[in-house]
Design a protein around this nucleic acid. Structure first.
Length: 682
DNA sequence: AGCACGCCGACT
DNA sequence: GTCGGCGTGCTC
């Protein structure tokens, strides 16, 4: 008998191997889905058997014998094979690359001699969680209705759980999970979160809510053994709840009964390297294959999600009220009762001194005087994004990238935030020798310095990737804020997620304009989402709180919508713009990118790719340099392709890429290229 | 993707 | 005279 095997290589088809006669006739039935080791060239690699066949497609004398079937791991179920194959087809990669890549790293390499013993040890290690039951949270009417709707779904259905931070989405997830698990003693639930480190509390809440049930988490920061143990527990049906990041969407779950995607709009659900899948979209596909409900939770759903909800394709579940207490908000506004007062400070009327406008500095001072905390949000680390010579106009650039090198004051370096290049600060201008080099613009370090100068007595803490490089320092920093040991917290995106800052009554947003004037059509959507998130940091303990946005565009409708927490109005406007401009979700997009030694060769390869014949439904635009045209010395260009539907896009791109592959193999020097379906950034 | 094979520069 | 650079091609 022969078997077809997928391996981790960019091959269009599974490879065929001879399955040595094992003598056990039952084996044939259970061989599909099994991991195995096979010879591949000079190597032995791990593969997954996807099919058996009586006669191979290639000449029999070219068929090699399969090395060993891994009987100690249960076969991967048919739905898992279907999901990985769907993802491979949709995102234009080889099935084996997706499937083998979805296995825990320890299972991606051929097993050593102690493998079976190691597996059994891992099976024992991941046992039922201990923990004492927590009081079951009382749900308000909206929460109860939402949980009821989700729990009652007998088939595939997509729910959008729409509610602001603090509206109690998590309680709805927990209740829905509890009901699904209670209805079937073998049922499993999958809960996806953007970044596991930001939600340590969630794991504890799950433990407390489901004492005696096995909960495993799956994410890339996990030690190899724990990752394998968790994966096996999921695969063998022992784990009832799997909590994980985007990679967990591929965890095999034989009795999957519910999928939840928390903060479904979050960009980290989109994989940025390798196969660029969207875990949110695959979660929906997965629920469809398993014929179970899926819940997408967010305070600011992705416009793609909102579009389907508005069209009735997804069921919209709203949480308007805060749990138990707060009165219903007025009908005109979607904002909860304790939504902060949002206002803009016009940079044109109040020229900033050291990066801060007078009204902002004043508000910080008043907050300080009241003994309350301020959170200053600026999405830019370092001291200043660029250093300039005022005599000759020289600007600090990265030698390897088409970008500026940022000035970092503590260690007096220039650093590229894209490729990691760094150099010590020049004493004088490299071109004209002038000794006066000026920092242009403001990063977290400079804002911290300014605030310390304005408020010498204030206890200021900066949280960004630089200040929290060492493990555990971020946690310590957040502890200090919670304990009230900090008056002003300055930070990047890191401070916008997950953490409850009890005594924060003022949130200051600097540099929001960078996203308002961005070339990326998704920038306003991301800005709105970020601002809702940072606004949600304020006023969670009943303090009257406000958000101040420093901007040159105070009349921008985005800010008005933010002030009312009018996501629906914002989304409706954005969707109208997208429809008029023929942008997603009204078209499907794919981005072909090329890297080469020169921009010319990258562009000419893409131009040739564009000239290749393709299906009528696939429109291809002019190749252009990428926004970051040179990264680490490599020139990059991109070509956008679009189609009216995702199905047309998939079919069109698939056929086109056959030609592109062929073109690339004939082109000298051989160009490097990638395809990204549903690109997150353009 | 690996890992070969295969032809051209700076080292014992 | 070799070690090794990465261009090119294949993997059942």
């Amino acid at each position: 008998m022969f078997v077809r095997v997928i391996v981790d290589a960019p091959l269009a088809q599974p490879l065929e191997y001879l399955l040595p006669a094992g003598g056990d006739p039952r084996e044939e039935a259970t061989v599909v889905g099994r991991c195995c080791t096979v010879p591949l060239g000079r190597r032995r690699v791990v593969g997954v058997i996807v099919e058996t066949c009586a006669t191979p497609n290639i000449a029999t004398d070219r068929v090699r014998a399969l090395d060993a079937v891994l009987h100690d791991v249960a076969p991967l179920p048919p739905l898992w094979l279907e999901l990985t194959r769907f993802a491979a087809d949709y995102y234009q990669h080889a099935w084996g690359e997706v499937a083998i890549g979805a296995l825990p790293p320890q299972l991606r390499v051929p097993p050593g001699p102690r493998f079976v013993a190691a597996l059994n040890k891992l099976r024992v290690r991941a046992t039922t969680a201990t923990g004492q039951a927590s009081a079951r949270c009382e749900l308000n009417a909206e929460q109860a209705a939402a949980a009821q709707a989700i729990a009652a779904a007998r088939h595939f259905a997509t729910f959008v759980l729409f509610g602001v931070t603090g509206s109690g989405k998590t309680e709805v997830y927990l209740e829905a999970i509890a009901r699904r698990l209670a209805a079937d003693p073998a049922a499993q639930a999958l809960l996806l979160v953007p970044e596991i480190n930001l939600t340590p509390q969630l794991e504890q809440r799950l433990q407390a809510r489901f004492p005696g049930e096995m909960l495993v988490s799956l994410h890339s920061a996990l030690p190899a053994g724990q990752r394998t143990a968790g994966w096996l527990a999921a695969h063998e049906g022992r784990a009832r709840i799997v909590l994980g990041t985007r990679l967990a969407v591929f965890a095999p779950l034989p009795r999957l009964a519910l999928v939840v995607v928390d903060e479904e709009h979050d960009p980290s659900f989109k994989a940025g390297d390798g196969v660029r899948y969207s875990a949110r979209d695959l979660a929906i596909k997965r629920a469809q294959l398993a014929d179970v409900p899926v819940v997408l939770g967010s305070a600011t759903p992705a416009l793609e999600t909102w579009f389907h909800a508005a069209a009735g394709k997804y069921a919209l579940l709203r949480l308007r009220t805060r749990p138990l207490d707060a009165p219903r908000p007025s009908a005109a506004s979607g904002a909860p009762a304790d939504w902060p007062q949002v206002s803009c400070v016009d940079l044109r009327q109040h020229p900033p001194a050291h990066g801060l406008c007078a009204p902002v500095a004043q508000a910080v001072r008043e907050t300080l005087a009241r003994g309350e905390q301020t959170l200053v949000f600026i999405n830019r680390r370092g001291y200043a994004p660029v250093l300039a010579c005022e005599a000759c106009g020289w600007l600090s650039t990265c030698p390897r990238c088409a970008t500026f090198a940022a000035f970092h004051k503590p260690d007096r370096t220039l650093r590229c935030h894209h490729c990691g290049w760094q150099a010590s600060l020049p004493r004088a201008c490299p071109t004209c020798g002038n000794q006066d080099l000026a920092a242009v613009g403001h990063g977290t370090q400079r804002v911290e310095e300014t605030l310390q100068m304005l408020e010498p007595a204030a206890r200021i803490l900066r949280i960004d990737r630089d200040s929290t490089r060492r493990k555990g320092t971020a946690a310590q920093a957040f502890e200090a804020v919670h304990a009230g040991d900090v008056d002003i917290l300055v930070g990047t995106q890191m401070i916008s997620k997950g953490h409850d800052f009890r005594r924060v009554s003022l949130v200051v947003v600097l540099n929001a304009d960078a996203q308002l004037v961005s070339h990326d059509f998704r920038a306003p959507e991301r800005l709105f989402s970020t601002l809702v998130q940072v606004a949600g940091r304020a006023g969670r303990s009943g303090l009257a709180s406000r958000v101040l946005v420093q901007t040159r565009y105070p009349r921008h409708p985005l800010f008005a919508a933010l002030a009312r927490y009018d996501f629906e109005g914002f989304a409706t406007d954005q969707l109208a713009e997208r429809r008029a401009a023929r942008l997603p979700p009204f078209v499907g997009q794919a981005l072909l990118t090329a890297q080469a030694r020169s921009m010319d060769s990258a562009l000419s390869f893409l131009a040739a790719a564009r000239a290749l014949p393709a299906a009528d439904g696939l429109r291809r635009f002019d190749p252009v340099p990428m926004p970051l045209a040179r990264l680490a010395g490599v020139h990059r260009a991109q070509l956008l392709a679009e189609a009216d539907t995702r199905a047309e896009l998939q079919a069109g791109v698939s056929r086109w890429l056959h030609e592109v592959r062929d073109l690339a193999s004939r082109t000298r020097p051989r160009p490097r290229w990638q395809i990204e379906v549903d690109p997150a950034e353009i």
